[in-house]
Write a protein that binds this DNA or RNA. Structure first.
Lengths: 152, 152
DNA sequence: TTTACTGATACTAATTTAGTATCAGTTTAT
DNA sequence: ATAAACTGATACTAAATTAGTATCAGTAAA
């Protein structure tokens, strides 16, 4: 059971990259190369993020995209919602009609509770937090290299 | 984002039906008709449940399937595992190799925590619990009909 | 020895996913 | 003015997955 599809996955990577330097505009090409994401695919993903208001863009030479909100205001759940729709456990739940199948309706209570838990978890994690984590990881890695140099 | 696919969905419905009367063998045909699940599809699902040890079978006329364990020992997470594999958030996590993409690796900590939460939630819910819920729902519905009769 | 069942497995259609390609328009620099 | 570097919109395709069908073989009971 794969939770994130490639759209969400690449979108998150791009958002984290943008979140590392909020306010700095980057082109789709630059992001594509830095993150190893197929260019045309990333283009479409960014366009979707722009339409959804998570990212702002500027056309023309020197243009590109940047976060449209503070990194802490962009949640992983927002991204999943955009590319994979709302978290739902079974199809029956989606059309909210009263389901003819009684066993399935029994599942509903548990199902809605779990949907809520999953959404809560994905809401807790923001692009800002992830970018912060990445910053710390890179800092740690840099310090490690400095320490190792004298020994090697 | 649909969490349960048709395999898991139908499997759960069939397991709940079996859990309503543990020990009673039912044929795939009877289950298919009672639950509105396509017969040949259900056959394959039951065969998978048999192989996985959740269900036991008896061949020949008068044969059929029954739960192989106590209903409370069959968890929703078992069913998801069988039909959709382990819950994983992104592909990178599946191959547990150290991912070359740093942003994705940053996601890993959060990702593993959320995987755990989701699995825990699905583990909490058993076929026994769901069958119990269904029993109560049906009881309530029956009482409602009895009360309504004098008025209509 | 027919009927009602499971075991195994091959097949197909529809949908989704991942990725590509193209053309039009905008902005900057020269 | 015009070439270069961008985004906007959208059409297209291949591969994988999902959902569902079909068939043949074997088993057990009546």
């Amino acid at each position: 059971m794969k939770v994130l599809n490639k759209h969400s996955d690449y979108a998150l990577r791009a958002l984290i990259a943008l979140g590392m330097e909020p306010g700095v505009r980057k082109s789709a090409k630059a992001l594509s190369e830095a993150q190893g994401i197929p260019y045309q695919f990333l283009r479409r993903i960014l366009q979707e993020l722009i339409r959804s208001g998570l990212v702002s863009s500027k056309e023309g030479a020197g243009g590109g995209v940047a976060l449209a909100r503070a990194p802490d205001e962009i949640r992983v759940s927002d991204v999943i919602e955009i590319f994979q729709g709302p978290v739902q456990v079974s199809e029956c739940m989606f059309r909210r009609q009263l389901c003819s199948n009684r066993a399935n309706c029994v599942l509903r209570h548990e199902i809605m509770r779990i949907e809520q838990v999953v959404n809560d978890e994905f809401s807790k994690v923001t692009v800002g937090k992830l970018a912060g984590d990445l910053r710390r990881v890179e800092e740690a890695r840099k310090n490690l290299l400095v320490q190792e140099k004298p020994k090697g």
